[in-house]
């Protein structure tokens, strides 16, 4: 009885402790700079303690949900599509997943609004709310489209088993060539937009989809072929956003 209880307790405790370990570096860095470098007191200590507890709990729940929900769904969808054998529907799903999860992404909305401000200040578009809204919305749809294309292309690569580095090197060349022609104001935003597209919910799902596909298709290795969808999704937005800047500018 006691042994079982204590086993239960350690099973509950272990993920909590590892979440604490994940958060510890941030707390140490902030504490060190606040107390030693800036020589200030910690404002509102109780609030910080509550916040840290929430973060640790949140991380623990997230990992639990990952293993119960997101990973199995991504994998079972991959198996179901592989069994069904319809390339069209698989690619349609890949595109929808990329487009649908990106278009509403809060980080992207923030970056798009910021970019509209830069464009208005640089005189690329008119300096009033309507033009800026139109520019930001256009940018958002451009990025969402680029992520949809990325996941579609990435899934197609997994099915064909083509080596990933040809695509990535080709993408890099695309970025470099576009950089030479794109207006200067858009470059920083374009480069950053590659990093903000993949949210915390999309990443596990898309990873599970890729690995699931690679494991269910004969002759594919999940390690070599299964990963790489995220890489595609962070590369295409750079090219598409610079193209957007060139067309609008």
């Amino acid at each position: 009885m006691i042994a079982r209880l204590s086993r239960r307790f350690t099973r509950l405790l272990k993920p909590l402790i590892s979440s604490v370990g994940d958060l510890l570096p941030i707390v140490l860095v902030v504490g060190f700079f606040q107390l030693v470098v800036l020589r200030q007191t910690i404002p509102d200590f109780a609030q910080i303690v509550i916040g840290v507890i929430l973060v640790v709990l949140g991380l623990t729940f997230f990992i639990k949900g990952l293993e119960m929900g997101l990973f199995p769904v991504g994998e079972s969808m991959a198996y179901a599509f592989a069994r069904k054998g319809s390339l069209f529907w698989l690619l349609a799903f890949a595109f929808a997943l990329g487009f649908g999860t990106t278009v509403a992404e809060p980080a992207l909305i923030a970056v798009a609004n910021e970019a509209a401000k830069v464009a208005a200040e640089g005189g690329v578009i008119a300096h009033h709310a309507e033009a800026m809204d139109a520019y930001a919305t256009g940018l958002r749809f451009t990025v969402a489209l680029s992520v949809g294309v990325a996941i579609l292309l990435g899934v197609f690569r997994i099915i064909k088993g083509w080596p990933i580095h040809y695509f990535i090197i080709g993408g890099y060349l695309g970025v470099v060539v576009m950089t030479m022609f794109a207006p200067e104001e858009i470059i920083g935003i374009a480069y950053d937009s590659g990093g903000v597209t993949t949210s915390t919910i999309t990443v596990p799902l898309v990873t599970a989809l890729g690995v699931g596909l690679a494991s269910s298709i004969r002759g594919r290795n999940p390690m070599i072929d299964g990963f790489g969808l995220i890489a595609f999704a962070s590369l295409t937005p750079m090219i598409f956003v610079m193209a957007y800047g060139m067309i609008i500018g």
């Binding site: 916040g51 929900g69 769904v73």
Partner: peptide, 24 residues
């Protein structure tokens, strides 16, 4: 199980973000 998993992900991320916004 999957629905519970989605619920946990939702709950976890919400708590995580609030905690960060609150503390760090």
């Amino acid at each position: 199980n999957v629905l519970f998993g989605f619920f946990y992900v939702l709950l976890g991320l919400s708590l995580f973000l609030v905690g960060l916004e609150e503390a760090l």
